[in-house]
Amino acid sequence: MTSLPSLPTPKKLGLVIDLDVCVGCHACVVNCKEWNTGGYGSALSDQHPYGADVSGAWLNRIHTFEVKPEGGEIVAEAGEARIVHFPKSCLHCEDAPCVTVCPTGASYKRAEDGIVLVDEEKCIGCGLCAWACPYGAREMDLAAGVMKKCTLCIDRIYNETFEEVDRIPACVRTCPANARHFGDLADPNSAVSIMVAERGGIDLMPEQGTRPVNKYLPPRPRKPLSAIASMLHEAEDTADAKGFFAWLDGMLDRL
């Protein structure tokens, strides 16, 4: 059924992505591709992987943005660019437009945990769900002719043959900077919900009315340079050297 679940799902599994921490290393992107090309559904194909015009289906991509502050508090910060690395994958929206447009019933949102999935046996590859998604979360697999999307690593998170620590999405497991977090956003006491509450987690494009489950933690405010300057010792200042180093400092001064 491509109608959305009539009641709010009891669990809202999703990701919280910390834009303050992401270093843009693309490890999550690569591990996502690696896991999902051998996991749920058909492989994530590439077209001309060794040619000039390389292309393929990816479920997670990192964009990098430059944010120019409109007026800073100290000289040199106003107009100074700030770089933000921006991982983007399916947001598992509560009001997912990709689900309702599907003509075949292939696209669906699970009533139990809110994960949005594609049943590849039913998908005709019309591409309308990719058009309906404002986030670009869905990409057609050109080899299989079916729509691919983030499954929240459904074949990991419920996989009891895995160690507990590995029952999280591949992107979260691999992130070396700990910028990605997985959990139940319907539970106000979950680690992810607390993080969202404390850091003021945001929805992407709230005006599209999709009510995304995944949240993004905005970059923390920057400390003005003048505040940091007082904390830095001048390289030449050796007045508080003691013992052997004071003697060495004195001897070297005399040379």
Partner: peptide, 12 residues
């Protein structure tokens, strides 16, 4: 991107 509160956003 939700980064509008910081300033103007451009793709790098």
């Amino acid at each position: 991107t939700g980064l509008g509160s910081i300033g103007k956003v451009a793709l790098l």
